[in-house]
């Protein structure tokens, strides 16, 4: 579904991503892990077709995503419908008068059917039915995060990109999100820096280093055994205890 090969990205002259290459298959659940400032958010924006690499190729379903390609409005429409990105700060992606209009914005914009049923279903899942008439800018941080997630999930995307989705969520909502991502068929790539929560969001770990390069790509169990695990500030003894009594169901 996604193929990235030798991607380099710079902000001004500062490198943000260097020689990034990996593929993600349809339905795969992957986690993008890395320390602060390693380029996780930039990589997600690049996959969402909002930024473009200075070097390298990015293919989505076999088609290269470039500025030129996205000038084709028909293609852009299909691409934006398929790929949904949750930003690190949910606040900035909410721009409609009420919660109902916020959630129904995507389905309306992309001409989907049964909009009301879709909105009510997703609102029910996130427990925000009571907020549907309220203006979005009056909500709390956690409520905004739930509305942002609902607005993306209502689109039934093929690829869901989440940038630190648990930052504003309480434990119960984090658990619900974990379960939902596991149950649904769509492909997910979740950016995080907390290893202990990250392992519940996907089987495959793609790890970025401070030097903006991929230093690991594989399953969690292999990552746990690697020296990188300790470099991330976790110790095996602690992690064993955490894995046994973890808060989420696997």
């Amino acid at each position: 579904m996604i193929e990235l090969s030798h991607i380099d990205f710079y902000f001004d002259k500062r490198p943000v991503l260097l020689d990034i290459s990996f593929n993600i298959e349809e339905g795969e659940k992957a986690v993008l892990l890395g320390p602060n400032g390693s380029g996780k958010s930039t990589l997600l924006k690049l996959i969402a077709g909002l930024l473009f690499p200075k070097r390298g190729k990015y293919l989505f379903n076999g088609k290269e995503i470039s500025k030129k390609r996205l000038k084709d409005k028909k293609f852009e429409r299909a691409f934006r419908k398929d790929v949904q990105l949750m930003f690190q700060e949910p606040d900035i992606m909410l721009f409609n008068p009420s919660v109902y209009e916020e959630i129904s914005y995507g389905p309306l914009r992309f001409g989907m059917d049964n909009i009301k049923e879709r909105v009510l279903k997703v609102a029910d899942f996130w427990g925000i039915n009571g907020l549907l008439k309220r203006p979005v800018y009056l909500l709390s941080g956690g409520e905004k995060a739930k509305v942002a997630l609902a607005s993306l999930l209502v689109m039934e995307p093929r690829l869901l990109l989440l940038d630190e989705p648990t930052a504003y969520l309480d434990m119960k909502s984090t658990k619900s999100l974990c379960k939902l991502l596991k149950k649904e068929r769509f492909t997910t790539l979740v950016a995080m820096h907390d290893v202990h929560i990250a392992r519940y969001f996907g089987e495959r770990f793609i790890v970025l280093s401070k030097e903006h390069r991929i230093v690991f790509d594989g399953p969690f169990d292999r990552f746990k055994e690697s020296s990188l695990f300790e470099e991330f500030g976790f110790f095996k003894e602690e992690s064993e205890a955490c894995l046994k009594g973890g808060p989420y169901e696997r």
């Binding site: 924006k45 969402a48 909002l50 409005k73 852009e76 429409r77 934006r80 419908k81 790929v83 949904q84 990105l85 930003f87 700060e89 900035i92 992606m93 721009f95 914005y105 995507g106 914009r109 992309f110 607005s151």
Partner: peptide, 17 residues
């Protein structure tokens, strides 16, 4: 930075389509 991010988020959700 925030204005750029907001514009990007709106673009991602099909606002300018």
């Amino acid at each position: 930075a925030r204005a750029e991010d907001t514009a990007m988020a709106m673009k991602a959700r099909g606002f300018f389509l």
